[in-house]
Design a protein around this nucleic acid. Structure first.
Length: 260
DNA sequence: CGTATCCTGACC
DNA sequence: GGTCAGGATACG
C-alpha cells in the first residue's frame, strides 16, 4: 500500500519522466476514473506542459503551464508505470498520459480506487491536511497539540490525515510498535514524553521504508515488525503478535511490550 | 463514534 | 460464488 515513502518515490519517478514536457494525449480507460476526471477536464490537460511535481502527504500535485493542477492519490494499489507510447497498453492502466517525446506514464491500479482530479488555477482543492509526516521542522509540541483534543485510539489518530499527513495503516502500526505504545491508547492521554517517542518512531519507520522503497518496490519478507505478522513472535520480547480491528481496519501489535 | 461505498484480485 | 482487504469519503 502506498504511503508517504512510496508516494515520494513515485513522485520522483514521475518528475524525472515528464517535467518540462508537453502533454500530447490523456486517456481515461476506466469508468471509475471518469467521475474524477470528466472529458471537459481531460480537454484542459491536453496540450498543457508540465511545470513541476510536488507531494503533500499521500497526494501528488502535477502543476501545469495553464495554472491548473492535476491531483493524484494512489489509494490502495496505484502506481506509475513509465514506458513509451509505442508499447501495448500496460495491464491495469486506468489513466494514461503521453508527452510529446513519446514518453508514456500510466497510472496502473488493479483495484481502480485511485483518484485523479483537476484543480483549476486558483482553487486549492486538496483536502484539509495536517503537517507532512516527513517535515523535519515539526516538533513534539505540534504532535502534542494535534492529539490533545482527540479522544480516539492513537492508531486512528495516526491515520487521520488532518492531524498528520502521509501515515497509513502499515506505518502507523510499525511506528506504534517502535514507540512501544498500545494502539488502543487514547490519543489525548499520551504524555509529552510518549508524543516525543512517537514522533521519533514515525520518522524512523518512514526513513527505513524510504530506503527499502529506493531499492525495490515489492514488500520484502521480514520488512515489518508487526504488520501482517499475527501469531508470530515479537522480535523484541517474543510474545505473539495480535491482530485487532480498529475503525474497520486491521491493527497488528505486540500485547506485551506495547503499553497503554 | 460506527458503517457503507468505491473496485477487483485473491482466497476459500 | 461468497468474502475479504483497504484509503478516503459520506452518512447515520
Amino acid at each position: 500500500m502506498p504511503e508517504l515513502p512510496e508516494v515520494e518515490f513515485a513522485s520522483r519517478v514521475l518528475r524525472k519522466a515528464v517535467v518540462g514536457k508537453t502533454v500530447r494525449d490523456v486517456k481515461v480507460l476506466h469508468r471509475s476514473q471518469r467521475r474524477g476526471l470528466p472529458p471537459r477536464d481531460v480537454a484542459r490537460v491536453r496540450g498543457a506542459s508540465i511545470s513541476g511535481i510536488e507531494r503533500r502527504g499521500k497526494h501528488q500535485l502535477i502543476s501545469l503551464s495553464t495554472g491548473d493542477t492535476l491531483i493524484v492519490h494512489f489509494r490502495m494499489t496505484g502506481d506509475w508505470l513509465v514506458d513509451v507510447s509505442a508499447n501495448p497498453t500496460p495491464e491495469y492502466a486506468r489513466i494514461v498520459l503521453e508527452t510529446d517525446d513519446g514518453t508514456r506514464v500510466s497510472l496502473v491500479d488493479p483495484r481502480a480506487l485511485s483518484a485523479v482530479t483537476l484543480s483549476r488555477a486558483g482553487e486549492a482543492s486538496l483536502p484539509d491536511l495536517g503537517p507532512d509526516a516527513a517535515d523535519p521542522t515539526i516538533d513534539v509540541t505540534v504532535v502534542e497539540r494535534a492529539l490533545a483534543r482527540r479522544r480516539i485510539a492513537i492508531k486512528l489518530a495516526l491515520l487521520d490525515q488532518r492531524l498528520l499527513a502521509g501515515v497509513g495503516n502499515i506505518y502507523a502500526a510499525e511506528a506504534l510498535w517502535t514507540a512501544r505504545i498500545d494502539p488502543r491508547a487514547i490519543a489525548s492521554s499520551l504524555t509529552r514524553a510518549r508524543c516525543a517517542r512517537l514522533l521519533d518512531a514515525v520518522r524512523t519507520v518512514l526513513e527505513k521504508a524510504a530506503r527499502w522503497t529506493g531499492r525495490y518496490r515489492e514488500n520484502g519478507a521480514g520488512r515489518f515488525e508487526v504488520y501482517d505478522r499475527e501469531g508470530l513472535p515479537c522480535s523484541r520480547c517474543g510474545a505473539r503478535i495480535r491482530r485487532i480491528v480498529q475503525g474497520g481496519r486491521s491493527t497488528y501489535f505486540c500485547p506485551r511490550c506495547q503499553r497503554r
